[in-house]
Nucleic acid binder design. Structure first.
Lengths: 166, 166
DNA sequence: ACATACTTTCAAAACTATTTGGAAGTACCG
DNA sequence: CGGTACTTCCAAATAGTTTTGAAAGTATGT
């Protein structure tokens, strides 16, 4: 396969993949583009290569910086900013995991913790409390595993886990 | 907290949570409602309790059945169908994981496998191939861990993983 | 076969999210 | 200070997704 074609496929696929994961298409595409660029790119470069507007490029670059997936870099003698993606895939995975855990999982664990203390003794209440309890238990376990696996080293974790599960 | 309030909070939260995870709001709400119902519910019940249309209820019930999160049950002497959610949270987690792995992760692994064989020797090609290779490696490891952890028993896996990571 | 009780489909409408592009803001330099 | 080179904001437009509701379809019992 030719580079140009492969590049394009990758950017499109990463975009589609991202949108299934709550990261919008452009943001994922910008990320994909930066991931495979050997050199940092300017906002202008991103706009051109993806055919998106300045506002869109800017907004998504900022979002990627928030997620710690992209860094600003300054080139000496250049006024404008350049952007460079974190290239270490383990760090990428860790950052994404940590961010989503914080934004989505933690609030759910908190809510379930409250809900399992609902009052009532009839069938309906019992079913509700049981479910809240079980889900709280499950989500906090997942939370704990993710906490540890992002604090320490994901690579090690995945290796260890694959062995464990063999 | 009172049952009615708690129930409502749970359904709303599960709906919001779901939509961040690529499951649409109604589908997640229908799921939440069934999760906390001690008895199977009919389409009509779901429509009433969530204030959604027949078409919507029907569509999402079918989708939940596809995901193996809900079963049809027939009551003797009743013509209409009733629906009942799988209540074992470990099974729920396993089914969701397996489904998403199949729909999203596996195609990405396949694509990256192809892309890492792109031709070219210049800087740009090298950067591209390196990234495709690294991502392929990462995604296939994740795939392998999920494969094993859903084949065997998630509960055991999570316990083992927490110990491992302590 | 017909009536009844239900399920499924689908095109239009409502709603949500994303994208654009111009205007405003900021920083640097001579 | 004014000009230039950029970045950021934001309201309006566009695109995408979900929901509705009525119509069509299907199964069951008499």
């Amino acid at each position: 396969m030719e580079l140009h074609e492969a590049k394009d496929k990758f950017i499109q696929a990463w975009g589609a993949f991202g949108s299934q994961w709550g990261i919008n298409r452009s943001m994922a595409q910008v990320h994909a583009l930066l991931l495979i660029s050997p050199e940092p790119l300017s906002t202008e470069d991103v706009m051109e290569q993806l055919n998106i507007s300045r506002g869109n490029a800017n907004m998504n670059l900022r979002a990627l910086i928030d997620w710690h997936l992209v860094d600003r870099v300054l080139k000496t003698g250049e006024r404008r900013e350049f952007f460079q993606a974190e290239k270490d895939v383990w760090k990428i995975a860790t950052n994404i995991t940590r961010e989503r855990k914080k934004r989505e999982l933690e609030p759910m664990v908190r809510l379930l913790g409250e809900l399992k203390q609902t009052s009532g003794t009839n069938n309906e209440s019992k079913a509700f409390k049981q479910m809240a309890h079980d889900l709280h238990d499950l989500t906090s376990r997942i939370d704990a595993v993710l906490e540890r696996s992002t604090r320490s080293d994901v690579q090690w974790f995945l290796k260890a886990a694959s062995t464990l599960l063999r």
